[in-house]
Amino acid sequence: MYQAGDVEQVRGLEGAAAKKIYQRLNNFIDDESFRILKRDRRSPDRMNALLNFGYYLLFSRINATVRAVGLNPYLGFLHSPQDNYESLVCDIEELFRARIDRFIIRLINLKVVTRDDFVEAERGLILKKDAVRKFIEQFEAEMEKKSPKDTLSLKEDIYIQTITLKKWAIENNSLSFYRWKR
């Protein structure tokens, strides 16, 4: 069983790992105008705007899946359910963020999304309307895509992880987490 402080310790490790990941994203980005200085949700640069949007779409997809299988999205185990948000969705989302990071870097490096796809807004840069449509189309294709190494699409992986959590919570089955194969 969990001891007091275990969840906080895990969240601290997750936060430290995320900081290192964001520091290294620039190593994979070809276009200088997409370089990220720090993770910033409130006044985003180009890269942060794409990460915000990609994570929002991922969160929405997971939220719909969690609700569709009959789980309460507010009852998480890593993120606090006391914060009055869908903490279970956030818990599952952490498992898939790297896939979204890779997806966004691919869009940038293939010039599917360019520096000209952004407009300055009150709180930072945002995607133009046509770029939003293009991003969503690419996101939906990414959700369906199966690579030669993977037997399931990202959408299917999310569903399987959600069902695994449900069986763990309701039927006392063993708990395993999604592991990304590159």
Score class of each variant (00 low, 15 high):
R133S: 15
L13Y: 14
Y159N: 07
I62D: 00
R133D: 11
R24T: 10
V119R: 11
Q3W: 05
S43W: 11
Q161M: 02
E142L: 06
D83V: 06
V66P: 01
G124S: 10
N72E: 06
F96H: 00
L37S: 15
I105E: 01
D157G: 05
I62F: 03
N109R: 08
L175R: 01
R179N: 15
D101L: 10
G70Q: 02
R61Y: 03
K111W: 09
E137N: 09
R115L: 07
L13F: 14
T162S: 00
E137T: 09
H79I: 02
S153N: 04
A18H: 10
R97T: 07
M47D: 06
R102P: 05
R123M: 11
R179Q: 15
K134I: 06
I21K: 04
L127D: 05
K167S: 11
G15F: 12
D130F: 09
R133F: 10
L152W: 03
M47P: 06
L78R: 00
K166W: 00
I163F: 02
L95K: 05
Q82K: 10
F77S: 00
C90N: 06
M47H: 02
E171H: 07
L71Q: 00
N173T: 14
I62R: 01
Y74E: 06
Y178W: 08
I29R: 06
S60E: 08
P148W: 13
E86R: 00
R115G: 11
A98E: 14
L13S: 12
Y55L: 12
I108G: 03
R182M: 09
M47R: 01
D116E: 14
F139H: 03
A4L: 08
N26Y: 08
N48Y: 09
R99I: 04
P81H: 07
M47V: 07
V66L: 02
L78F: 01
S60C: 13
N109I: 09
V113S: 06
N52I: 07
D40Q: 09
L58P: 02
L125V: 12
I126W: 14
D157V: 02
N72A: 05
L175Q: 01
I21L: 06
V112R: 04
R179E: 15
E122A: 13
Q3F: 10
Q82I: 15
L95T: 07
A4H: 03
D83F: 03
A169W: 00
R61Q: 08
K146C: 14
D117E: 08
R102S: 14
R35W: 13
L58G: 01
E144W: 03
F34C: 04
S87L: 07
D130P: 03
A121H: 13
Q138N: 11
F34Q: 02
R123T: 13
A17S: 13
D101Y: 08
F77M: 03
S87R: 01
F53N: 09
K129F: 12
L51H: 02
